[in-house]
Design a protein around this nucleic acid. Sequence first.
DNA 1: CGCGCCTTCGCTCATGTGAGCAAAAAGCGC
DNA 2: GCGCTTTTTGCTCACATGAGCGAAGGCGCG
Lengths: 329, 329
Amino acid sequence: MAATDTAATNELLAVRAAELYYEENKTQDEIGAILRVTRWKVGRLLQQARDRGIIRIEIVHPRARRLALERDLTARFGLRDAIVVPGPADDRELQARVAEAAADFLVSVRPIPRLLGVSWGRTLHQVAESLPEGWSTGVNVVQINGGVSLSKRPGTAASTAVMIAQKAGGEATLLPTPAILERLETKRAIEGDRTVSGVIDRARGAAAYLYSAGVADTSSVHVDSGYLTPDDMRSLVEKGAVGDVIGRYITADGAIADTELDARTLGLGLDELRDAAMSILVIGGEAKHPIAHAIVRHGLCSVLVTDEHTARSLLDSAPDTTPSGEDPS
Amino acid sequence: MAATDTAATNELLAVRAAELYYEENKTQDEIGAILRVTRWKVGRLLQQARDRGIIRIEIVHPRARRLALERDLTARFGLRDAIVVPGPADDRELQARVAEAAADFLVSVRPIPRLLGVSWGRTLHQVAESLPEGWSTGVNVVQINGGVSLSKRPGTAASTAVMIAQKAGGEATLLPTPAILERLETKRAIEGDRTVSGVIDRARGAAAYLYSAGVADTSSVHVDSGYLTPDDMRSLVEKGAVGDVIGRYITADGAIADTELDARTLGLGLDELRDAAMSILVIGGEAKHPIAHAIVRHGLCSVLVTDEHTARSLLDSAPDTTPSGEDPS
DNA sequence: CGCGCCTTCGCTCATGTGAGCAAAAAGCGC
DNA sequence: GCGCTTTTTGCTCACATGAGCGAAGGCGCG
């Protein structure tokens, strides 16, 4: 009763208290009796144990979220909201979780957007599928970038928008044109078409945008669909492109990678996303970290739905040009 | 507000509640406001979440214990007490943890045993080292089985007992004889010696025994020390021996593996352990599961100090010959 | 040895939380 | 539809708990 005191005695006591409290469901009073300390001391020991990370509480569920990361993201990047899901190792699973989370978020958006601008792609399609039937009432949907598939799976772009609208009992306005035109003149001509310009005008009036992003490499849907050749893509990468947002390829600095190509790209511009009341980026997976960085760091989205690895990667990145937040705690 | 109800809605709500409660430290009242349910419902959701294992609380600390397993072990095998430590993958680390736990237990035994019978071996030595200086006052120690090392590291058996006694300010009574004699006559002769029989008599009067166990294979200390030849050991294994307790090799059925050999083994008998007020077995690691089973299932110890894998292995084993305890909860 | 500083302690009190219960709602067989 | 049972809900009340505070104790410096 003389020698072993002071030092780490408290830590051991804290461990015992934690075991009795969390594993044996004893009251702090009972624990006090067992460990021969007052119940207030037990409370303090438990506090210590929590602070020192001896007690680890984890929520194990596919639908779980990482609220702490969400908070950090919104603070750091001035987002309106952030949704972060735990990241399983399996990439397929991860994409599904992120899409599900995006669907959940969409359902809960208040005020309900009367008109929702959407892009297309695998991620967006999964979001559409994850939406419950009747997820809202009377939400109309408008496509914000071109997307007739030139080769395989025709109409997936359209079906995404239609599914989202149909499940909310609303109507979909499609933009049934190629995403990227081969010649500037063709693009201008299509843009001049009353129907097409009408859709784009309508898209500009959307209360919220929902979109994902693609990676700049030869496995991109744009190459797959024939909008870009593998050579085009290599050239883009050489110019610093990290990926595309609604069809427009940007560099890590958030700038258009190739202005000539961009001029031939049909649909909303990046500024419309930046200035929108709500632009929801749905993105997940290691491969998309660079493009996610570019988008988030340059304010192209106001809501981010992602996985925890991507979130951590974003938060770990150097504070960019803006030297504001200093406190590391 | 119509379609998505009933089914898994509660589970999702429970997850959200858990996140807000455990990760954001909100009160159940606040959570109720956020999730638009009453605070009692929040309480029930959290209860559900805990029951279904959505919330996982873990105590991460080298000195942590597994109280649930301890409870199960004492109930299942009628033990007086059980100490179970979390099992790291590394075997060295695991042995150290188990030894530490045994030392902790020894310090807290009440009433304090005036005389403690100890065996020897690597495990016991670690226990001795883990005991704090002055762990008790005036505890005397007596060796319960022979153990002069014939080859390497002479005196470790003695030093273990001495260290335990010295750290408690007590005296050690040694049994400075071989563990196993080559000829029965020699064993009888030594046993007949007043000094030796005096030590063994003293050992019989110990208030508690502290011992470990060895595995029956050619890497055993008994082979290493020259008490047994590799051939002896192979013969023992053929006879069903799974390991030794204070020098005596037993089978999975708890019986002496080789009575002739046993007769040449010096020290306390197994019945003394079985009938003792307190006999503390310290054992850990995968390799020792069989001998641990044999000892625990046949009542040779009343206190068990082990790792969680061994504990689980014991609990998973078929309920033996004794069809008593039926309730699985 | 005495003084002040800082930590730790035990306690009061306001608040948070779970057991238990009656009422309402939801199934369910007919 | 109509009683029946079973589940879910909102609530009262007693208990458990953490914030805050003054007292006690340890520690270093003069």
